[in-house]
């Protein structure tokens, strides 16, 4: 089955079963139709003595049958594929996050521990990995055929993709969305290592700081702490423990503080203003790279709520105004 392509993730065999079932079904239909056509072509060639009574007859019954049978078969395949698709989009809890920034024409990868690599991704065997991805310029697409996964990488917004590798080895990844001149050079390898080897690889590539620590440094050096810090005089929301909470917005709606929300709040602060705060934050558009924003998001994620904080940002201020 996998003579052409290895099955190297937990999802690969599930996708393959569906794929080969579909190939079998399509092959069966194609062979059946071709055989019928050839049979008719030989039997009813002009001048043959085959019986042709009822030559021009039509049949509603036959038509309805071959409308409903494919319809039923398609619906069955559709439902099956939904289950596989839903799993492809449900990363297991506790998946290890790896950050990926795509640009013309390279993949920049940063591990949670701070290790960086370009056009290569080292991962431990059997661990679920979740890639959080963003592009610095045009649309790219991250594809690992051996894992049967692919996801476009967009500018301006995060997309994600997960896999759990099941075989050690090197597996090619490609950029699958045309992105300009050197699109075909935007390739690399996922290196799946036994956990011990992976630990050794991590130790051999020590990072001075992990991603969150880099984010913390940026939080101070770029002046975020001047307003959002504990001792700030400016009236700005406290960000400790923000990640994953429900945020009440000035327009009355709410939003979950996820990667995308924090990313947008840094670049487009006027888009979603927290209830009870004036829209005074300047945009950091063009001043922070996507990698720096990923580090800031990782820092905010790493913080925990301080004791005096309300459970959700903005809700108390809204309350005070009533």
């Amino acid at each position: 089955m996998s003579a052409l392509l290895p099955d190297a993730s937990t999802m690969a065999p599930r996708v393959d079963v569906l794929f080969w079932y579909m190939i079998g079904l399509c092959g069966f239909v194609a062979v059946g139709i071709f055989a019928t056509m050839i049979y008719f072509a030989l039997k009813y060639r002009a001048g043959s003595k085959a019986d042709r009574t009822g030559k021009h007859k039509q049949s509603i019954g036959v038509e309805v049958t071959w409308t409903l049978v494919p319809f039923g078969m398609f619906i069955a395949v559709f439902i099956w594929s939904l289950f596989v698709f839903a799993r492809l989009h449900s990363p297991p809890a506790g998946a290890q996050t790896v950050y990926l920034v795509a640009k013309q024409w390279m993949w920049k990868i940063q591990h949670a521990g701070g290790q960086r690599e370009i056009n290569a991704l080292h991962v431990p065997l059997g661990e679920p990995i979740r890639l959080v991805m963003i592009s610095q310029d045009v649309i790219h697409s991250f594809s690992v055929p051996a894992f049967r996964v692919k996801q476009d990488v967009l500018p301006g917004t995060y997309t994600d993709l997960w896999f759990t590798p099941t075989e050690t080895g090197r597996y090619s990844f490609y950029c699958d969305q045309y992105c300009g001149l050197d699109h075909s050079r935007m390739i690399g390898d996922v290196v799946v290592m036994a956990p011990a080897d992976y630990a050794r690889w991590l130790a051999k590539n020590p990072a001075p700081e992990n991603v969150a620590a880099r984010g913390a440094a940026l939080f101070r050096s770029r002046g975020c702490s001047g307003c959002h810090g504990a001792n700030a005089s400016v009236h700005a929301p406290d960000l400790d423990g923000l990640y994953g909470r429900t945020v009440h917005l000035a327009d009355g709606s709410t939003v979950i503080a996820d990667d995308r929300y924090i990313h947008d709040s840094i670049l487009l602060p006027d888009k979603q203003v927290v209830a009870g705060f004036a829209p005074i934050m300047p945009s950091f558009e063009g001043q922070l790279s996507e990698e720096e924003i990923l580090e800031l998001v990782a820092y905010i994620k790493s913080t925990t709520a301080t004791a005096h904080q309300p459970p959700s940002v903005g809700s108390e201020s809204t309350h005070e105004r009533h």
């Binding site: 996708v15 794929f19 559709f78 594929s81 698709f85 996964v149």
Partner: peptide, 8 residues
Amino acid sequence: AAPALDEF
């Protein structure tokens, strides 16, 4: 047409 296969 099956998104699970299209993703591949």
